[in-house]
Each structure stands twice: as structure tokens, then as C-alpha cells.
Amino acid sequence: MILVKKLVKRFGPITVLRELDFEVKSGEFVALLGPNGAGKTTLLRVLATLSRPTSGLVRVASYQLPQAGASLRADLGVVSHQPLLYGDLTAEENLHFYGKLYSVGAERIQEVLELVGLANRKNDLVRTFSRGMQQRLAIGRAILHNPRILLLDEPHTGLDQEAGEILDSLLHSVALEGRTVVMTSHDLVRAAGLASRVDLLSRGKIAASVPAADLSASDLVDFYRTALKGRGKA
């Protein structure tokens, strides 16, 4: 579903992604972990067509980037640490607006509001929502058009424990619908609990990749530390 080979992304003199290879099969849920500045967000932005690769092969859902544009974006749902919602519009109006851009009807909007548990708050302005509610609505926005691929960039940022758990169960149910999911996170345990595979990104390259089922919580910390040591030697 996602194939990346020798991807390089530079911002002026700074190289963020260094000949990165990455593959995600259809229906897989991959957690991308790594320290700040490892290139997680940049990789997600390239996959989401928000950033143009400097060189390398990037293929998402059989579309080659950067040539593929609108047609690929119809297959993508993106959740960022910012909710990408308008505070001066109500929850329903926000979905109505995105629905028009994605050619989604009113029935689906109501369905999504039910799914994310905000049907009873649909007429409230988004700026009155808590961070957790905004993030649930952001997931609603991302899945509004039933995309095959979900890209989640640190969706748990700024959420308290309870809101994080609600988001987890929502993400779990969304992933169960057979979507391919790539999620970046700093929360090792939470990411491994949701994902089927954990990849560690370090210095713009995948430093390690293991099935999440093979990792216990303590293994995960060792796995992360070992990969970071490798980064120090690099």
C-alpha cells in the first residue's frame, strides 16, 4: 500500500530524510517512533502530498508521488497534532465544509458525528470543545470520505489520560475497518498497544522494525534505547 525507497528530503542545507526505505502492507497499522527531529512528521507530510520529496521513490496506494495529486488525496485521511478545524464553525459545519470538498453527503456526516460521539454537540462551536473532543472530531474529519489510508501525526499530543483512552478506542475501531494506518508517536507503550508493527526512525532512516506483538513494555524501552545508541554511533 505504501512503498518508499531511498527517500531524501532536504530543507535548504538540512537533510531530514536520508535515503529512507519504508513499506506498509494493506491493512497494516504501523507505529513510527523516534526522537524529536528524527523525521517522523516530514515522512508523514511527504506521504500526505503536503511536502515534495527531494529524491527517491514514493508510491502510495499505487500512485507515484509527487505526480499524483488530487486522486491520491481522495484515498488519504490525515490527523495532525493540530485538529485542522475551524473554531468559529460548529462541529457539523466543519464536517459539512470538508464534506463539500470531498463530495460527501449529509448522511455520512451524521454517521461520523455518531461514530466519534459528538452527535449531541454537533451544533456547538469547535472553539468551545476540549482538546480531546477536537481530536475526536479531527478523526471524524479524516475518515469522513472513507479513506483507505490513515496518516496520524502524534494524535495523542496534549490529551489527558482519559481523552487518550477514548481516542485509542476510536483509533482501534477505525483500524479494524481494514484501513492502512501509519501513526507517529512519542508514547512507546500506547503506540505498541495500537499498532501491528513498530518502526523506529532515527536520523532520517528506519533504524529498526519489529512486530508489536513481539515486544513487551520492557522490551520496547530496550528496543528504543538500543536504536538510539545506534543513532549516536552513526
Binding site: 500526505a48 502530498t49 503536503l50 495529486g69 488530487a70 486522486s71 491520491l72 488525496r73 481522495a74 488519504l76 490525515v78 495532525s80 493540530q82 485538529p83 485542522l84 478545524l85 475551524y86 473554531g87 470538508y98 470538498l101 470531498y102 474529519r141 470520505h145
Partner: peptide
């Protein structure tokens, strides 16, 4: 408000 990315992700020509 971070919404520019939301617009850029829409499956429409960006001249919209």
C-alpha cells in the same frame, strides 16, 4: 489555526 493543511489535503485542484 493549522487549517491550511486541511485545505491542501482536499482531493481537489489546489487552484480551488
Amino acid at each position: 489555526r493549522g487549517c491550511l493543511d486541511g485545505l491542501l489535503l482536499a482531493p481537489v485542484d489546489r487552484s480551488v
